[in-house]
Design a protein around this nucleic acid. Structure first.
Lengths: 139, 139
DNA sequence: GCATCCTTGACAATGATTCTCATTCTCAGT
DNA sequence: ACTGAGAATGAGAATCATTGTCAAGGATGC
């Protein structure tokens, strides 16, 4: 370990650059999930010449730091969203894509209990419910 | 032609072919998720000259018909599993990869309730817990 | 100012998945 | 059993999201 290292100094994460800020702003401007490609188009449309690779790098970076959430579309494309403070899950319609955010204290408790029972610590979990929403069922 | 009855032979299911049967058998031979590529390798290793495209088509076909479950790996690769009778979830160690299968009737109930509450039907859900197992934590 | 390190952008490379198309096979009707 | 229509297959090309490479630009510390 080098003596010049600062233990918990730059805790606020990576250096802020105009490009990174732009990506974050783009995500803040919408309240649902967007793919990296969409974020790039969004920025390009707004006049930013930011590169696609930079968008990918930035999203991955912030995802690592917990500033954005990552999910997968049904076709496997990764989608990102600014991370909300409250941990919640998604109820997604497989037909129209409508998304409902739900909280599940019961699930949180259950996962903790199960994990503890098996000696696991430092937990994270993902839960997603897919179904057909009322509108699509009637259609 | 045998005179044995086949209640759901061609009723809604796709035509059965040796290749499709082989894919299904391959999935039946393992009890966890496999990617299309892995299924293909599995079959190739067993001497089957089945094409990769056919594996993809077959898996997609059976997924449509609800005979296999589809999930996504963290890197976005699709993984398939024979639709098992007992639905369970996975507790995975992020360090050593150890996996524990857990059942969660509480979770099943909760997801059903939540989904119903929002008018969703025909449900499916995925839940995965990632953590550090006891061994890895001490190491 | 100068050296160093981080970041960026353009483009190539990768890899899973899908598409195309000629060939082969199945099934139903005769 | 024979045959025709349409489905299924295999090989390879095509697609597309994502990641790697590398030279150039910009910030930071001395």
């Amino acid at each position: 370990m080098t003596s010049t290292e600062h233990p918990a100094d730059h805790a606020d994460g990576p250096r802020t650059t105009p490009q990174r800020q732009a990506v974050l702003d783009a995500l803040n401007g919408v309240d649902d999930f967007r793919s990296a490609q969409e974020v790039h188009e969004l920025l390009a449309g707004a006049g930013s010449g930011i590169g696609l690779a930079t968008v990918y790098r930035t999203l991955a970076l912030y995802a690592d730091h917990g500033l954005v959430d990552v999910l997968r579309r049904e076709d496997g494309e990764a989608i990102y969203r600014r991370c909300s403070e409250t941990h919640h899950h998604h109820l997604v319609c497989r037909s129209c894509g409508a998304t409902v955010e739900v909280e599940g204290p019961a699930v949180e408790r259950w996962t903790s209990a199960i994990a503890a029972e098996h000696g696991f610590s430092d937990l994270a979990h993902t839960l997603e419910i897919v179904g057909t929403c009322a509108d699509c069922r009637l259609r």
